[in-house]
């Protein structure tokens, strides 16, 4: 367990006044506050650090202990003894940073249990903040993030899936047309709140695996289909795959290689728009014949010379 330099974290020197610390803390908190840095784990980690530093340096008792022992904190067995004695005489009520409205931070509001204070803090000061005597604050529970892998075919159909999140089964409906990387929120399925606070939310991010047949562009699908030279030259009818099955497609005579055709409404379902579909864009890949017989070669020569 490494020593944590709280002064360095808050970028103040050891003689900093309470006001200096408060200002430094607020400045850094404005930079790293999780509400200002959504989906940024690094900012969240940094915010935890400065929150912990603030917890220690703005509490005269804790700061005194910290300054007194500093890097020799490991020998401060007396801390633990004193803390236990204190705990016997008061009820631990959970630290709120400060009274709401007074400008303090509710660390736990962002889904971090008190136990997320560093091991160093836990070892030196015991639980996550010694807020004995302070008013109990209600905290919203932690938000959970989960990833769900889907095939392209699954993402094309509204269906239900059962997920297990922290030992609890949750049945969710996945609407057809979800995008790769799209996140949906399931309210109230995060961690339970503390002191009567509301539950956190569950955020599910969909990861849609690549499909061998189709590439997706929003609600349109893109695919390549092979046609033989004779169909390309003379025209004809071929069978092509779509997401919902095979369809027959007419090929015009003299179709060039890489010609694109659009199959209207045969693409991907549009998210949350029942009955609306994108289009399927097919590119023809004209296959030249191989292993020609002498007679066939002669016929091609005749064509070439005609």
């Amino acid at each position: 367990m490494a020593f944590v330099d709280y002064y360095k974290i808050l970028e103040v020197d050891k003689n900093a006044t309470e006001k200096d610390i408060k200002n430094a803390y607020r400045k850094l908190a404005r930079k790293y506050h999780p509400d200002l840095n959504p989906n940024d784990p690094e900012a969240n980690r940094k915010f935890q650090e400065i929150n912990e530093a603030n917890e220690v340096l703005t509490d005269p008792e804790k700061r005194k202990k910290y300054d007194q022992y500093g890097e020799n904190w490991q020998h401060a067995d007396a801390y633990e003894q004193a803390r236990q004695q204190q705990q016997q005489s008061r009820t631990y009520s959970g630290y709120s940073g400060s009274e709401p409205g007074s400008g303090g931070f509710n660390f736990e509001s962002f889904g971090n249990e008190g136990g997320d204070f560093s091991d160093f803090f836990q070892s030196m000061f015991g639980g996550a903040g010694g807020g004995g005597g302070r008013r109990q604050a209600r905290y919203r529970g932690q938000d959970y993030n989960a990833e769900l892998q889907l095939t392209l075919q699954e993402a094309a159909t509204t269906h239900k899936q059962t997920l297990t999140v922290n030992g609890k089964s949750i049945r969710i409906t996945i609407p057809a047309g979800v995008e790769n990387g799209q996140t949906i929120k399931i309210s109230g399925h995060g961690a339970p709140g503390a002191n009567g606070g509301p539950n956190g939310d569950l955020y599910i991010t969909f990861l849609i695996a690549d499909d061998l047949r189709f590439k997706r562009n929003g609600s349109d699908l893109i695919a390549t289909t092979k046609i033989d030279l004779y169909t390309a030259v003379l025209g004809g009818e071929i069978t092509v795959d779509t997401l919902t099955g095979q369809v027959k497609l007419k090929v015009k005579p003299e179709t060039q290689n890489n010609t694109k055709v659009k199959l209207k409404g045969k693409g991907f379902p549009v998210y949350k728009k029942d009955g609306e579909f994108g289009d399927l864009y097919l590119t023809f890949d004209v296959q030249l014949p191989t292993n020609l017989t002498e007679q066939q070669k002669d016929l091609f020569k005749q064509l070439a010379n005609s």
Binding site: R30, H33, D35, G103, G104, F105, N106, S109, S187, D201
Partner: peptide, 15 residues
């Protein structure tokens, strides 16, 4: 959820 975030910004960061 949005309103709660605004309250946190106000209470936590004095904004």
């Amino acid at each position: 959820p949005d309103l709660e975030r605004m309250i946190r910004l106000h209470q936590d960061l004095n904004i």
